[in-house]
């Protein structure tokens, strides 16, 4: 509209009307209201966490635990009263989830049992799972997934204490967990009752969360074959299969260029790692030639990816402007 007006194609009145249509006044009210709610809630929660973290010795256990429990219950009652269909209720539920973790940390410090940190995250994840399931709120799910990912990593490190042979299996578990979440998102996204799943950022975030744990063992498998253990091989194979499944899904079932671009980047990194490894071994004594070939190879790999994706854009006939 601004460019049309600047080039004299429309009148000032037309521009003003178009801007009113594009930026309705009530949207500013909603926007500001939600911004204040999000930042305000975050500040209050941070303040509570700060309070307990830094004023530890001065507070009696009774006050510590009861105030947190009152906070949690108040948030849950608030979420119930506002209903989970409104953002206020959803934010209150998310606040209750945060306070659950704070409560467990405080409880663990008062009644020290020598338990590992993973148990805190495990209980935090289990206790918040129920209301996460009914929350209809993407940030609540992402928060729950972050807690559960942390639990898995800590559990693997502190609870399982894997032998060197099994170390890399954690990447498979993380990929399965996040992949499961992504699969659920894609399964329910077409359901009109679950509009909250539709924003693209959820898919992008989950795609990255799945691709990363699949990519790492593959790169290790390729770059350091002498270090390969059964868990690296297993995770790498699962990773490769996972890449294939994701590609097939976003190529044929639910066409999405952003996801395909992320998968393409991941594949480029794998091929690049293999190529660099091969060239470094072949031209160890003539470094400058090795660098030249590496540069050329990199261009080749990424060019193929770009060409392929551009062709897919034509196939999908998607407007990406």
């Amino acid at each position: 509209m601004e460019e049309l007006y600047a080039h004299g194609k429309i009148t000032h009145e037309a521009k003003e009307y178009a801007l009113d249509v594009l930026y309705p006044a009530d949207k500013w009210g909603v926007w500001t209201s939600r911004l204040l709610l999000a930042i305000g809630s975050a500040l209050v929660l941070c303040g509570i966490v700060y309070f307990f973290a830094f004023n530890w010795a001065k507070i009696t256990p009774l006050v510590k635990l009861s105030s947190l429990q009152i906070g949690m219950v108040a948030c849950l009652i608030g979420a119930y009263l506002y209903s989970l269909k409104r953002m206020s209720g959803q934010i209150l539920l998310l606040s209750a989830s945060v306070l659950t973790g704070v409560f467990m940390a405080v409880f663990g410090q008062i009644y020290q049992t020598g338990a590992d940190a993973y148990q805190l995250f495990m209980m935090w994840s289990l206790l918040t799972l129920g209301w996460t399931l009914i929350s209809n709120f993407a940030p609540q799910w992402i928060f729950w997934l972050a807690i559960t990912n942390t639990f898995l990593v800590l559990w693997w490190d502190q609870g399982v204490l894997p032998e060197r042979d099994m170390e890399y299996m954690i990447y498979t578990y993380l990929a399965v967990l996040n992949g499961g979440a992504l699969a659920l998102r894609e399964y329910f996204v077409t359901d009109k009752a679950k509009e909250w799943l539709q924003p693209r950022w959820i898919r992008v975030l989950l795609t990255i969360a799945v691709l990363l744990p699949m990519l790492i063992p593959i790169v290790v498998w390729v770059v350091e074959p002498s270090r390969v253990t059964p868990s690296i091989t297993t995770s790498a194979i699962i990773g490769l299969v996972g890449h294939g499944l994701m590609y097939a899904f976003y190529r044929y079932r639910m066409q999405d260029m952003w996801s395909l671009a992320a998968i393409a980047l991941s594949v480029c990194i794998i091929v690049e790692a293999a190529g660099l490894k091969m060239l470094a071994e072949m031209f160890d004594s003539v470094e400058f030639f090795m660098f030249l070939l590496m540069g050329g190879m990199t261009l080749g790999i990424f060019t193929v990816a770009v060409i392929y994706l551009r062709k897919l854009i034509d196939v999908f006939e998607v407007d990406h402007v």
Partner: peptide, 16 residues
Amino acid sequence: LMEKSGVLVGSGVALL
């Protein structure tokens, strides 16, 4: 730190 937590909660409440 005590005042800081108060300021955080206070400013959050003001925004809410």
